[in-house]
């Protein structure tokens, strides 16, 4: 079976930041946007919000650059796992991440990152609008195509 991944449907995001709260609570037992692996970027005056999260890349710069060997791939989920006990806090991973991920725990002073919650990511589970989904890339693209062609068939605006 194809690996699932976190898919971002930016147009659906309501900017509520439930994902931030779910993530921080599940991973850190506290509620704090700063401790959340996913963050919502907001442009209030435009009414636009986008959840920014780790893509768990195929060629993971964070893993390649880590001098402490703290990042490894979890085979079952494809998640890149940060071993906080190995992390030396150099933030090389954040420096090279093209998406601005591999965040920094302000108290522990180590890098922390999305681990897909072991295959049931809380951010997607509690996202009220479907902006964050845990699915395969193929299924998510098929859903978008279906939505597009439904409009074409119905002759509506698109």
């Amino acid at each position: 079976m194809a690996l699932k991944t976190l898919v971002v449907n930016a147009g659906k995001c309501t900017g509520c930041r439930t994902c931030e709260m779910a993530c921080s609570l599940v991973h850190e037992n506290k509620c704090s946007p700063q401790l959340s692996r996913v963050r919502v970027i907001k442009w209030e005056a435009q009414g636009i919000s986008v959840p920014a999260t780790c893509a768990n890349c195929t060629t993971p710069y964070c893993m390649l650059v880590c001098p402490a060997g703290a990042v490894s791939v979890q085979a079952e989920t494809g998640a890149l796992i940060m071993d906080e006990s190995k992390c030396i806090g150099c933030r090389a991973c954040s420096t090279v991440c093209p998406l601005g991920q591999a965040i920094y725990h302000p108290e522990k002073r180590v890098a922390i990152k999305c681990d897909l919650c072991g295959g049931d990511p809380a951010c997607a589970k509690f996202c009220p609008s479907g902006a964050l989904e845990y699915t395969t890339v193929d299924q998510s693209l098929m859903a978008r195509r279906r939505q597009f062609y439904k409009k074409v068939i119905e002759g509506g605006e698109h």
Partner: peptide, 29 residues
């Protein structure tokens, strides 16, 4: 867009845009 207040699982908030007419292009929460 639909708008959600903090950690809201309802998101009843709206963001409206007027596509044409006298007020074309105006947008507001």
């Amino acid at each position: 867009h639909r708008e959600g207040c903090f950690a809201c699982s309802i998101s009843c908030g709206r963001f409206s845009k007027i596509p044409g007419g006298k007020y074309a292009g105006e947008k507001t929460g």
